[in-house]
C-alpha cells in the first residue's frame, strides 16, 4: 500500500535525494536544474516568502492612521489575542470547518453512490447536482440571503404555508452559523460531486464486474469496493474543503457580516475586520491573526496528510 503511494509521489522527491548522494559534485546537470527552477524559486520568493516574512514583521509593529508600520511592539499583538472574544472566534472557525467539511464530503459521496444505481436520467441528475459549482460565492450568497429574509424570505414563506412559525435564519444567535454552514455545504456540493463522479468513472469496470460476480451488490459494493477505491478523491476533497472552510469569507460577509453578536465571525472574517472594515487600519493585529491562521492551516493539513493519507489506497 505504502509503496504504491511512493510510486505515485516519487517524482518530486527523487531529485533532492539523488542530489544528496552526490553532494560533492556540482555537475552541469545541477546548473541546468537550477536554471529551470529559477523562475519558480523567484516567484515563490516574491509572492510567498517575502510576504510571509513581512507579515511577521507587521505583526510585531503598531500602525499609524493610514496603516504604515510604526513602533515595535514585540509580541503584544499576539498577547492581545488572549481574550474570550478571540476564543469565541476560534470556536466559530472550528464549528464552521467541521460543520461544512463533514456533511459536504459525506453528502457528495452519498449523491454519487446513489447515482451509481441504474436509474433513468442519472446524467441529468449528475449535472444538476454538480451545478452549484457554477455559482460564484457572491451570487450564491445573495440568492441565499433572499431565501433567508426573516419577513419576506422564501424559506419562511414555505413555513408559513404549512402553518409553521417563522425562523430567524440569520438573525438568531443559535441558528445563524448553521444557516451559513448550510449555504456553504450547498456551494461545495457541486465540486464534490464533480470530483467523486470523475473518480468513479475512472475505476476500472472489471473491478466492479468482479465484485458483482462475487456477489457484492448494493451498499456492500458501495461501502467495501467503491468507497475504498475513491480514497484519493475523498482525501483530496477533505483537504481542500478544510482549507476552503478555514478561508471562508464571501458567504459570511454577504449574509451576516460576522453577526449576530459575532456568532459567525471566523478567523478570516476577523482579520478582514481588523485590517479593512473599520477605521482603525490595524494591519499589525490583522497580520498577527493571519499568522495564527497560517499555523492552523499548516497543522490541519499536516495532520490530514499524516493520519488520513495512510489509509488512502492508490490504485
Amino acid at each position: 500500500m505504502t509503496s504504491s503511494v511512493d510510486a505515485g509521489r516519487s517524482a518530486p522527491g527523487e531529485g533532492p535525494q539523488r542530489a544528496a548522494g552526490n553532494r560533492r559534485k556540482w555537475t552541469g546537470e545541477h546548473t541546468l536544474a537550477w536554471a529551470f527552477l529559477a523562475p519558480s524559486v523567484l516567484v515563490f520568493a516574491v509572492f510567498l516568502i517575502y510576504p510571509l516574512l513581512y507579515t511577521v514583521y507587521l505583526s510585531m509593529h503598531g500602525n499609524d492612521i493610514v496603516g504604515n508600520p510604526s513602533t515595535f511592539v514585540g509580541l503584544d499583538q499576539f498577547a492581545e489575542m488572549m481574550t474570550p472574544e478571540f476564543a469565541k472566534i476560534f470556536a466559530n472557525t472550528l464549528l464552521f470547518t467541521v460543520g461544512t467539511v463533514a456533511p459536504g464530503v459525506a453528502g457528495a459521496l452519498l449523491i454519487v453512490l446513489l447515482l451509481e444505481a441504474r436509474i433513468r436520467g442519472r446524467r441529468v441528475f449528475r449535472t444538476g447536482f454538480a451545478l452549484p459549482f457554477a455559482f460564484s460565492v457572491a451570487s450564491a450568497s445573495v440568492v441565499f440571503s433572499v431565501f433567508y429574509n426573516p419577513a419576506s424570505g422564501v424559506l419562511n414563506g414555505i413555513l408559513y404555508r404549512f402553518d409553521l412559525p417563522p425562523v430567524e435564519w440569520l438573525t438568531s444567535q443559535d441558528l445563524a452559523m448553521w444557516s451559513i454552514i448550510l449555504t456553504t455545504v450547498w456551494m461545495n456540493l457541486g465540486y464534490g460531486v464533480l470530483v467523486l463522479s470523475a473518480g468513479l468513472g475512472a475505476i476500472q469496470p472489471d473491478i466492479i464486474e468482479a465484485a458483482r460476480i462475487d456477489g457484492a451488490t448494493g451498499h456492500r459494493l458501495s461501502w467495501h469496493i467503491l468507497v475504498p477505491l475513491l480514497g484519493p478523491q475523498l482525501f483530496f476533497l477533505i483537504v481542500l474543503s478544510t482549507i476552503n472552510a478555514l478561508q471562508g469569507f464571501g458567504q459570511i460577509h454577504i449574509l451576516t457580516k460576522g453577526g449576530p453578536a459575532d456568532e459567525t465571525t471566523t478567523l478570516v472574517y476577523s482579520i478582514y475586520q481588523e485590517a479593512f472594515a473599520t477605521g482603525s487600519a490595524n494591519f499589525g493585529g490583522a497580520s498577527a491573526q493571519a499568522l495564527v491562521l497560517f499555523l492552523i492551516v499548516l497543522v490541519c493539513t499536516a495532520v490530514q496528510f499524516g493520519v488520513i493519507e495512510r489509509k488512502v489506497h492508490y490504485s
Binding site: F47, P51, Y54, T55, Q247, I271, S287, A290, L291, F294
Partner: peptide, 13 residues
C-alpha cells in the same frame, strides 16, 4: 493556498 493565505495580508501591505 497556505502560503497565499499568509501572504494575502502581507502582500497588500
Amino acid at each position: 493556498r497556505t502560503a497565499l493565505l499568509a501572504g494575502a495580508v502581507g502582500l497588500t501591505l
